[in-house]
Every structure is written in structure tokens, then in C-alpha cells.
Amino acid sequence: MTTRDLVLVALFTAIIVVLGLIPPITLGFIPVPITAQSMGVMLAGCIIGAKRGALAYVLFVLLVAAGLPVLSGGRGGLAIIQGPTGGFILGWIVATYVTGLIAERLVKDGQNEIRQFAAFFIASVVGGIVVLYAIGMPWVSMTTGAPLTDVATGSLAFIPGDLLKAAIAALAARAVLIGYPLLPHRA
């Protein structure tokens, strides 16, 4: 890994921290408020790729574990990782890696706007939603004793918001790809 890659990883981790400081927005038609930080997985994978994106999240999880209040709402510490939603926090690393892998495979230079958007959107949905929930939900079920099927049903409430986040992340990722392309230079 070059020094530049290391710096990109650290800067992206810092961006994820800052996204947690931005006040969450509520949309009328979605029950859960949207925190900018929860788009971090999709953004990291789509913008700096699989390896660097996953490393940015390894670093972020280390910040959480080290007791820095870097999660949105000023949360942090090992207690959050031990709690029922800890699976989502650890799942971020894998989710970012998968998002990055798909984005690296599907997005190419010279594709038209819509194809690039679609590719980023698919990567964000598969990595940032499917993979993340596949890790997070069994953890909730295991720690609380609630049956997995019921946890899955309950999680459906978050899906509309997540799809919207995937769309925003895909648009932002495409804008960054045009303005300052980093994805093609793989780590």
C-alpha cells in the first residue's frame, strides 16, 4: 500500500466521522430519520474501492472501539459493539468491501451517465443493504433472542430509507468519479 493509499483511507475515515456530526434529516414519507453517516459504507465502496474502502472502515471501527465518540449522535466505545446492533458496525467492513468490488467491476470509463449511476446503485444496494443486513440481523436475533424472521420483518421499515440512501450515494459517487476519479486506481 502506498502512502497515498494510506492517506486516502485515513481521509475517508475522517469524512465518515464528519458525516456523523451533520444533523440527521427527516423526510415525511419515511419513518426513520436519515443520518448522513449511514451512507458512508456505500460512499466508501463506490469512491475509493473495495480494499481502501474496507480499510477505512477497519480504521473507523477501531476509532469506535478505542472509545472515541465518532458514531452519529456522539456515540462510541466498546459498549456499542457489544450491544444488539454491534453486528451492523462490524458488518460495515465486509459491506464496504463488497460494494467496492461490485463498483470496480461494473463502473468503467466512457460509460454513459445512466449506466454508471445504475452500476453504483447496484453496488450500494448489494453491499450496503443486502450484505449489511445479512450480517447485522443474525446478530440482533442472537443477542436478543428474537426469531430471525421477525427481526427481518422489523427491518423492512428501514428498507425505503436505505434505497433512498443508495440512490443519493450513487449520485454522489458518480459526481466524485467525474470530478476526481479514484476508483480506477486500485489499491
Binding site: V7, L11, F12, A172, V176, G179
Partner: peptide
């Protein structure tokens, strides 16, 4: 809006990497 904030924020930050 997040959409109009994210792209400039990320580009502005990452271009310092070099």
C-alpha cells in the same frame, strides 16, 4: 441537502491526499 453537500465535501477533502 446531502446530495449537494457530499460530492463537494468529498472532492475537496480527497484532493489533498497527494
Amino acid at each position: 441537502r446531502p446530495l449537494t453537500i457530499l460530492a463537494p465535501l468529498i472532492i475537496l477533502t480527497l484532493k489533498d491526499a497527494d
